[in-house]
Amino acid sequence: MTRPNRSITILMADDDEDDCRLAQDALESSRVLNEIRFVHDGEELLQYLRRQGAYTDPASAPAPGLVLLDLNMPRMDGREALAEIKSDKDLRRIPVVVLTTSRAEEDIFRSYDLGVNSFVVKPISFDDLVIIFKSLTEYWFQIVEAPCDGKHN
């Protein structure tokens, strides 16, 4: 339970600046020390994960231990990005949690069919968002043995 998790990076893919801001605030409010990085669409996300384009330097783009994925994004949306990640043998082990406003059944079913690790609906109040970040980091970085520990880094 007390494993150091400082080095583990959270990568959030969301085109909404407000949501990115709120996520950053919530992460801080939850007193979680993990670093959070942002990409704004599916293509950027894949480039980041594959260390392409602007993300070739491991120092400025550390490998993430958890991906938070919004479904509705420009260029390549979260569904396509999820499908891509889960069909790529180098990327499929990275835990991906969908964080979206959609509560449509078909989105939930489809995401799990594609192999998402969790599906979380964005809460309405900020307080709830804080609780979600607290739970997610605790769960993925302390409770669960994640496959990318040590391997990806």
Partner: peptide, 19 residues
């Protein structure tokens, strides 16, 4: 869906403002 987004922001930033 799209109508919900701004509403959620209004509430979230309202929360931030108040707290």
């Amino acid at each position: 869906h799209d109508l919900q987004e701004p509403l959620r922001k209004i509430q979230a930033f309202g929360d931030r403002l108040r707290s």
